[in-house]
Amino acid sequence: MKAHMVKALNMALYQEMERDESIVVLGEDVGVNGGVFRVTEGLYEKFGRRRVMDTPLSEAGIIGFSIGMATTGLRPIAEIQFQGFDYNAYHHIQQHASKIRNRTRGMMHCPMIVRLPYSGGIRALEHHSDSLETIYIHLPGIIVVCPSSPYEAKGLLAACARAEDPVMFFEPKRLYRAFKEEVPEERYEIELGKANVVKKGGDVTLISWGAMTYLCKMAVEELEKKGIDVEHIDLRTLHPCDWETVVQSVKKTGRCVVVHEAVKTLGFGAEIATRIMEKAFYYLEAPIKRVTAWDINIPLPALEDYYFPDKERIIKGVEEVMKEG
């Protein structure tokens, strides 16, 4: 069926909850209201309030409670209403969710998913638009996933529902209803830890995830018309990252552009560039280029468009890298 990302995520949640009785969905307004973005719509009616819990308004409470559930036999899928509000819960992820397996030398683990509607582009109020994937990628023991389309969202969420470790599931909220695509109704999984080569090409490697993949796809089409043959990689799982696919591609093309919505300084692009330097330096024909948000606090909606990379900046970035060497 044709579905936008909200519907795809909703279908995944529905199917996973049917498949596995230990899954409990919880968060602020996820029950009766179906979530402020409607991702959990209909689950409350189908599975009841014991499995679809409207919680007190506390991010730390939601994640703390979830860790207790996850380490004793349930599989919570928690929603943080906006990623910009997850800092109160971060210590639970950092101190326990990420460490419990190692602390107990594999005897206990914490299979939970934290869904994080993230980044901007939806004209939201202050504090609603951050892209802080890096703070989770910095944690050993955590899986970080970021879908870029409805099809990807459904398959990745299904895979995460069977993962053995805590997953931070970044949902690019500007893609929630941006477009529809064909999404199978039956259950399928997209393998975690495996990047997607969106388009093969020989001239330059373009790396992105989430909403930026959507923009990059449009940029790639235009670049093709200009005669630039881009290899476009959608990382999908940011942590642990599929470095093999990245490195192999850059060895082939000799050029690389990384695009992300997070600020430049210590954004994931910094790590990607360094890995390429370590593994493929002698294959490079031009410096690696990062097309990112600026190193500033994200502006309010009226000026937000200055902040995020857009199609034009991506095209310009690729053209710059093509001119070098």
Partner: peptide, 14 residues
């Protein structure tokens, strides 16, 4: 403390 609360929920669910 909240992990204990969550563990209580597991007990309840089961």
């Amino acid at each position: 403390l909240p992990y204990g609360a969550g563990a209580g929920y597991t007990i309840k669910m089961r």
